[in-house]
Amino acid sequence: MTTAIDIRGVSRRFGRVTALDDVSIAMPEHSLVGLLGRNGAGKTTLMSIIAGQDRASEGRIAVLGHTPFEHGPTLRQIIYVRDNQRYPDDYRLHHVLRIAPAFAPNWDADVADELVDGLRIPAKTPLKKLSRGQLSSVAIVLGLASRAPVTLLDEPYLGLDVTARSLFHTILLREIAAQPRTIVLSTHLIEESASLLDRVVILDHGKVVVDDETEAARDSVVLLSGNTDAVDRVLSGRPVLESHTMGAMTSVTAAGAADDSLRALADELGVQVARATLQDLVSAHGAETPEPLELKKAIRV
């Protein structure tokens, strides 16, 4: 499988703040990659660097084989509309629809029209006065109608109503079937997009904590719940990413796959074992490292 986006050892510092810390990711061509993580984890910075709008302080990045920064032929293959995109003064929708084809060699006007109608973007209102959801819709039109081989969608759902989100999914899937492309999608509405994603990259504090196929990523942790002592025994030293305690009951998200011995022990001790959803996984990796259960018990006693 060809690698469409190859990121090696990329760091990005803004003054003393490290937004990305030694990030290495290889995104396969034509895959749909979810870029997940908490606010401030570095998702937007990473997308900006992939799109050549920003430059890494360290490390190398290749998009379709070239460093995107100031490389015209590569930049024409990428579309990235940021979630707080600025438009020229006095812009209205028709300005965007008129100029985008000049930059996007694969622009599809029918797709644009379909999205504008379906998402009900007002044509006459200045873009500055559009609601959050309407601005997201404009970004979706640019993102999908460009038919760019590398399409970066930054929080495409922000402010969208449920019908619009559904329409976005339908057209996204139809579009990548019609013209395969590599898609990176950042979002906080994880369950809504989970079934779409081939791969997930989870960032936390500027570092990559998960980079895997979606199903494998879900199996990289296990959910346990039951009596605190029993859960602790089943854990038998596995690192805990996130835990909740209620009285004598504890539920944890622990690192490592659920193997047969764990299942057997859990069964014996009456501890429930569940498969993590993508949302569980992202939440666990974003949580501050919890104190060991032993300590909590000590405090409780």
Binding site: E70, R82, R86
Partner: peptide, 20 residues
């Protein structure tokens, strides 16, 4: 002023290089 201040970010979004 506006030819750069509010147009530059959008030009980059569309895939222009800074040079062009």
């Amino acid at each position: 002023v506006q030819s750069v201040a509010t147009t530059f970010p959008f030009a980059l979004t569309l895939g222009s290089t800074r040079r062009s």
